[in-house]
């Protein structure tokens, strides 16, 4: 499917990563201090808590040109603000349903709990996510909006016909 859209191997996805200040952002700093190299595709936007993550931020990132969005928060029970990560999870689950109805592949948006000590997990998750999104190809949201929901599996052909969701 998406391979049809983008055959070139040179595609480098752009991923926006929303990391909470206390756990995941710190873990990303730790990955740096430990010189763990990983894919350069994720660009981090720091928020104080994953609970600050307005679902609109994810939509905005995808609209503005991101091919994927990664959200990093503290492990359940570890939130610096008690339970912001639970709220993030709830909003994330609801948003995923909406993304599905827009024809956006589920694996373009990922939520991970990464503790301040888990620099290795930052490395692993960003690498995995980059590979996944690279395989999916560019998001090309403008084209997708033309795709009838039932036919988004053959996006290339459908895009040519036009239509609406």
């Amino acid at each position: 499917m998406s391979e049809n859209i983008h055959k070139s191997d040179s595609f480098e996805p752009r991923i926006v990563a929303f990391f909470c200040n206390w756990c995941t952002y710190t873990a990303a700093d730790l990955a740096g201090t430990a010189r763990m190299t990983y894919a350069p595709n994720a660009r981090v936007v720091r928020i104080m808590c994953s609970g600050r993550l307005d679902p609109q931020f994810i939509l905005a990132a995808l609209r503005d040109g991101a091919d994927g969005v990664l959200i990093g928060g503290c492990h359940p029970g570890d939130c610096h603000y008690q339970e912001g990560n639970y709220k993030a999870l709830r909003r994330f689950i609801l948003l995923k349903r909406m993304l599905a109805s827009l024809g956006i592949e589920e694996s373009r948006v990922r939520l991970e709990w990464i503790a301040a000590s888990e620099g290795e997990k930052v490395q692993r998750v960003i690498n995995e996510m980059t590979d996944t999104v690279r395989r999916l190809g560019p998001l090309r949201l403008e084209q997708r909006q033309m795709i009838p929901a039932e036919a988004h599996g053959s996006a290339h052909a459908a895009a040519a016909h036009g239509g609406n969701v």
């Binding site: 928020i47 808590c49 609970g51 600050r52 609109q56 931020f57 905005a60 603000y81 912001g84 709220k87």
Partner: peptide, 24 residues
Amino acid sequence: CGTCVAACPSGALQQNLFTDEEIF
């Protein structure tokens, strides 16, 4: 933490240093 800001349906709640405008 800003969780109230994320939940406000009208954008009336904002967080200093992390306003919607700044993050968008």
